[in-house]
Design a protein around this nucleic acid. Sequence first.
DNA 1: TCTTAAATTAGAATAATTCTAATTTAATCT
DNA 2: AGATTAAATTAGAATTATTCTAATTTAAGA
Lengths: 139, 139
Amino acid sequence: MTMKNNPHINKALDVLKKSPLKLTTQRTRLIEILFKNGDQHFTAEDVYKEVNKYRYKISLATIYNCLNQFTKHEILKSVRLSGDKVYFDTNTERHHHFFCKSTEKLSDIKSSDVKISNLPKIPRGKKLESVEVVVNITD
Amino acid sequence: MTMKNNPHINKALDVLKKSPLKLTTQRTRLIEILFKNGDQHFTAEDVYKEVNKYRYKISLATIYNCLNQFTKHEILKSVRLSGDKVYFDTNTERHHHFFCKSTEKLSDIKSSDVKISNLPKIPRGKKLESVEVVVNITD
DNA sequence: TCTTAAATTAGAATAATTCTAATTTAATCT
DNA sequence: AGATTAAATTAGAATTATTCTAATTTAAGA
């Protein structure tokens, strides 16, 4: 009964297959769950709870391992911000975030929706890696 | 031999005196050390190491307590970003940061040095709290 | 000086994450 | 298909930053 031909799932699975990572049951299962509904944001604990609603159980260690490997191979993007937990994002494009301090939920801001100008020069000898904009909001 | 009349120290001490916080030996000592050189960024652990170079020791619990109280009373600002630790900043004005992933050091970007335009509208029912820009750099 | 709420402290507790070491498994090689 | 092996999974221990607890001390006002 699992929805076949979900384009988000297929795209993520393709990236996994092209990576040097092994195509394990756990990884496939995780991708099916995480990418089922397009762009989503979640913590390792969120994933652990969600996954284990089903009869196929995955250990927390594996969830951490997979999320980190997926991030390394650009199947996911990690977002670290105020608060103690790391968030993972199914959107791997360059973009920014709203972060609601009340609900602790993230939502995307398209990169093209924010214009940053006048950025001062990068300190001597350093090189630019990324620009992250977080718009903190509350209820 | 401690430098009297350091304006950064005096300013911070004044804010402390105007706050409901008690003027304890530890708090005075911390302010003298943290504000000695103007704008600085540090973690609780940094402060613990720095403080305990001197003969007057302050416990780690007190350092956490003080840094948090100082933040609540706007003597310091806290900055949370990629990485696991909270940074504290002697600059309490609205501003942004460079974060060097190699050295794990922060440096300030004046608010006026970044122009953000075109920010999408805040989701329904939410209100804006702050906009944080972090420019990640590397060696 | 007396009082008392707030501050300090050592050490225990917590929470997110990573590590360890044993077991299992996917993918490759006959 | 069966054997091989490096990678993956796992439970549980370890780690790290931070907060909590509960006992003691102290600042500041009466």
